[in-house]
Amino acid sequence: RNRTTFTSYQLEELEKVFQKTHYPDVYAREQLAMRTDLTEARVQVWFQNRRAKWRK
């Protein structure tokens, strides 16, 4: 699989949710996936990576 390149809009939306919660539930991830036109799996992985970056 190729690396996903996120648009500025997608990143904005993802970051907005990340500010509210670092662990969005499956419903929140589904909503976000629909809004950003990404798969729920991509959203889930983005949050995993974002949490790792945040911990550093």
Rank of each mutant, 00 (worst) to 15 (best):
N49R: 05
T21W: 06
R29C: 10
A52P: 01
Y27L: 14
K56A: 07
N49A: 12
T5V: 14
Q48A: 14
Y9L: 12
R50M: 05
N49P: 02
T39V: 05
S8R: 13
W46V: 00
F47P: 02
R35W: 06
A41E: 14
V45R: 08
F6S: 04
F6R: 02
Q10E: 05
R42K: 08
E15S: 04
F18A: 00
D25Q: 03
K20W: 07
Q19K: 13
F47I: 02
D25I: 00
T36S: 07
Q19M: 09
A52K: 07
A28E: 13
F6Q: 06
R42W: 09
D25K: 02
E30R: 07
Y23H: 10
N2P: 05
L11G: 05
E40F: 08
A41K: 14
M34Q: 13
T36V: 10
H22Q: 11
R55W: 07
N2S: 10
K20T: 12
V45K: 09
A41Q: 11
Y9Q: 05
Q10I: 03
R35H: 15
L11K: 05
E15A: 01
L32Q: 00
E13Y: 05
V45E: 14
Q31S: 11
Q48H: 14
E12N: 13
V43W: 01
L14R: 00
W46K: 03
K20V: 12
L38N: 02
K16A: 10
A33D: 02
N49T: 12
E12C: 05
E13G: 01
R42I: 15
F18P: 01
Y23R: 05
R42T: 13
K53E: 15
L14G: 00
D25L: 03
N49K: 09
K16C: 09
W46S: 01
Y27F: 13
L14K: 00
Q10A: 05
S8N: 09
R1K: 14
R51K: 04
N2F: 07
Q48P: 00
K20R: 10
T21G: 05
L11R: 07
V43G: 01
R50N: 04
R35S: 13
A28K: 04
R55Y: 13
M34C: 13
P24N: 00
R55L: 14
K16P: 02
V17W: 06
Q10F: 00
K20P: 01
E40L: 13
D25A: 04
W46D: 01
A28H: 05
Q48K: 14
E12M: 03
R29E: 02
W54A: 13
K16W: 05
W54F: 11
A41P: 09
T7E: 12
V17Q: 15
A52Q: 07
F47H: 01
D37S: 11
R1Q: 06
L32S: 01
E15L: 02
Y23S: 07
A33G: 10
R35Y: 02
Y9M: 11
L32W: 00
R3K: 13
R55K: 06
Q48L: 10
V17D: 03
V43S: 00
D25Y: 02
R50V: 02
K53I: 08
A33S: 08
Y23N: 13
F6I: 12
T7D: 05
T36H: 06
K56D: 11
L11F: 04
L14Q: 00
E40I: 06
A33P: 00
T21R: 04
A52S: 08
P24L: 04
F6H: 07
M34G: 12
A33N: 01
D37M: 10
R50Q: 10
R42E: 12
Q19Y: 08
R3A: 06
W54D: 12
R42H: 07
T7F: 06
T5H: 13
N2Q: 12
Q31T: 08
M34F: 12
K20D: 10
T21E: 13
Y9T: 15
E12S: 10
Q31Y: 07
Q44R: 11
D37Q: 09
